[in-house]
Every structure is written in C-alpha cells, then in structure tokens.
Amino acid sequence: MSGNGNAAATAEENSPKMRVIRVGTRKSQLARIQTDSVVATLKASYPGLQFEIIAMSTTGDKILDTALSKIGEKSLFTKELEHALEKNEVDLVVHSLKDLPTVLPPGFTIGAICKRENPHDAVVFHPKFVGKTLETLPEKSVVGTSSLRRAAQLQRKFPHLEFRSIRGNLNTRLRKLDEQQEFSAIILATAGLQRMGWHNRVGQILHPEECMYAVGQGALGVEVRAKDQDILDLVGVLHDPETLLRCIAERAFLRHLEGGCSVPVAVHTAMKDGQLYLTGGVWSLDGSDSIQETMQATIHVPAQHEDGPEDDPQLVGITARNIPRGPQLAAQNLGISLANLLLSKGAKNILDVARQLNDAH
C-alpha cells in the first residue's frame, strides 16, 4: 500500500501541473516587456503551470559599433537563445518575429505568432524639431536608422535628408537623439515604442507609400524545439490566425527572394473581405531603383483552434497545428507568387547589386 502511495506522490510531482516552463529572452527592456506579455497570456491559459524567465545577451546586443547589415552573420539576435533551447536550458524563446530568419536551424520551429501590433515605422524627432515631419525637416538634416530597408525607401522619398546608421537598443538610440546634436530624427518601429509606453515620442507614423515595413514587423514569434510536442501544444494558444497568415505570406515572399538583413526588402499586408493583399518591394541601397507589386488571394481566416493538420510540417519556419492547413498554404503560395513576379521584373539584379555594395563598404 505504502509503495503505491509513493508512486502516486511521484506521479503528482512529475505531472504537468508541477512543471516549471523556462522562457528565454534577450536582456533589453523591450525584450523583457514583450516576454512578460507572452508569459502573462500563458499564465492565464495555464494557471497550474509556473513560468521562469531567463534573460541573456546576444551577438546583436554586444556589437554596437557596426551596422547590422555589415556584421555579416545571420541570427544576430537569436543564436545564443537557440543555443540555450538546444541544450534544454529553456523550453521556449520569445523573439520579435522580424529577427527570426525565414529558414531556422534544424530542430527549431516557430510554435506561435502572437497578435500583431502596429507594424509601421515611426519617426521620433529631436526636441528642437518636435512638430515637424520628415518632409518639413531642414535641408541636409541627419536621420538615424539601423535599417537598409528604411534608408533606401526614405532616401527616395525625401532626397533633402541624409540617413546615417544608429545602433543600440531603444533606450540607447533615444538617448543619442536627445543628448547629442548629430541626429534631427530617428526611425523606429511603432510597436516597440508603444510597448515601452513611449507613445508621446511618436512624431509621425510612416504610411506604406512612404515606407513599407519589415517582414514580420510588429509581431512576436515564440520559438521552440520542433519535436517538443508538449510545448508546441502549450504555445499553440498564442497563435493569432490573421497575423499568422499575413506573416506566412510575408516570410514566403522574403524567403523566395532570398532577402535578408543586408538587402532592402519591404512588405505591406492587409486582410479585407476574405482577401489577403500582399505588397512587396525591393530597392537599391540608395533607393534610386525599385520594383513594387501587389497581389491578392482569397483566404478564409479560420477561428482559433479549428482542428489543424496533425502532421505539422513547417511552413517558412512556422508550425501551427491548430490552424487549418489550406489557408496557410494559400498564404505561402501568395508570397511565392509575388516573389516570382518581382524576380521576373529584375528584382534579383537589384538585390545582387545591393548585396555587393553593402559587402564592399
């Protein structure tokens, strides 16, 4: 009898209710805020589980004197976190989706994509230029951005401005803007500013005609071990179906173009009346040469937790077992079709030249 009692006690200790789920994140304040929001949602869904947040620095956090596009290494903000995932030191990792490459290392998958916040870019102005827009900034004003995508589009749109690289986390960039006289304004992701509670610093939100956004911008991705079915089931509740389908289309477009950090590629997606609209573009580094096109596809946005595919093969690095396969494939095909259209119009040449120029500098 006593033996059975011990077995029952052991089973209770090993039951999922007692389990601590370890969540990996970057150390920056924004990353911690984003991770806290994901953990809060998981806690609400699984009140019996405990969650421990483990923060670590990544290569991208450490190399702050070089433009991201020049470092010449993929997975700048993800490699150390993936290493911890691989060694079973954490069970899942919360990322900004735009930091996750469209091809993940073997053994990993994006197990959830959370509801997207505003994906557009924002302009934050130096205190002396508050009330201005990019259009009304004085001639030769210097605007800071760490992104080739932003610089290429904005140089084309605002030729009277000069664009220079600015690195560091959000706090560091804002301090550089406010305390030094080098920059009249800087460009940042609206979602990051909003998550930090800095709505009052948003001086201008850039519309798609001015600057399309990065693939996955404004959404959070939760990376897990691809074979860890328990954790895949656990994080599945975080999937937002519309965000998922938009981001599958965007990531398929980028992957098929073979774009990345070192080339200016941008997108804009919208879901309306059962249609998914995808606009994508590529630019030369100075913005003088560009190709942009829009395509659409009829896609039914499923309700969360309709029964999805059981075999769960990944699409552009994403596993969404609780979302039907048909809409996911339709979104992926839309991204591939748009990429093929741009490639047929000469996108590869623009991107190759951009890559060579970026590598040469």
Rank of each mutant, 00 (worst) to 15 (best):
V23M: 12
G24V: 08
Q29P: 10
S37N: 14
V38M: 07
V39K: 07
A44S: 12
A44Q: 10
A44F: 12
Y46S: 09
P47L: 06
L49W: 08
F51T: 13
T58M: 11
T59V: 07
G60A: 04
D61S: 01
A67W: 01
A67F: 01
K70Y: 10
I71R: 05
E73R: 11
K74Y: 07
L76S: 11
L76G: 09
K79N: 13
L81I: 12
L81D: 04
E82G: 04
E86S: 11
K87V: 07
V90L: 12
V93N: 08
V94R: 01
H95T: 07
H95M: 06
D99K: 01
L104K: 01
P106N: 13
F108N: 08
A112C: 14
K115L: 12
E117S: 06
A122R: 01
P127T: 11
P127I: 13
F129E: 15
L134W: 06
K140A: 11
T145Q: 04
R149D: 04
A152R: 11
Q153P: 11
L154E: 01
L154W: 07
R156W: 11
G168A: 01
G168M: 01
N169V: 12
N169E: 06
N169K: 11
N171D: 14
R173P: 01
A191C: 04
R195S: 01
V202H: 01
Q204L: 14
E209G: 08
M212V: 04
A214G: 08
V215M: 10
A219S: 09
A219H: 01
E223S: 03
I231L: 04
L232D: 05
L234R: 07
L234S: 03
L238N: 01
D240E: 15
P241R: 01
T243S: 11
T243Y: 01
L245C: 11
R246I: 06
I248P: 01
A249Q: 01
E250G: 01
E258L: 03
C261L: 01
S262Q: 07
A266T: 07
M271S: 12
D273R: 14
G274T: 01
G274I: 01
L276T: 01
L276H: 01
G281E: 15
G281C: 10
V282G: 07
W283C: 07
S288T: 09
D289K: 04
M295K: 12
Q296V: 12
A297G: 10
V301M: 05
V301I: 13
Q304C: 13
Q304E: 13
G308W: 11
Q314G: 01
G317I: 09
I318A: 01
T319P: 05
T319G: 07
T319F: 11
A320M: 05
R321M: 07
R321D: 04
N322C: 15
I323N: 09
A330R: 15
L341A: 01
L342R: 01
K345T: 15
L351Y: 12
D352L: 12
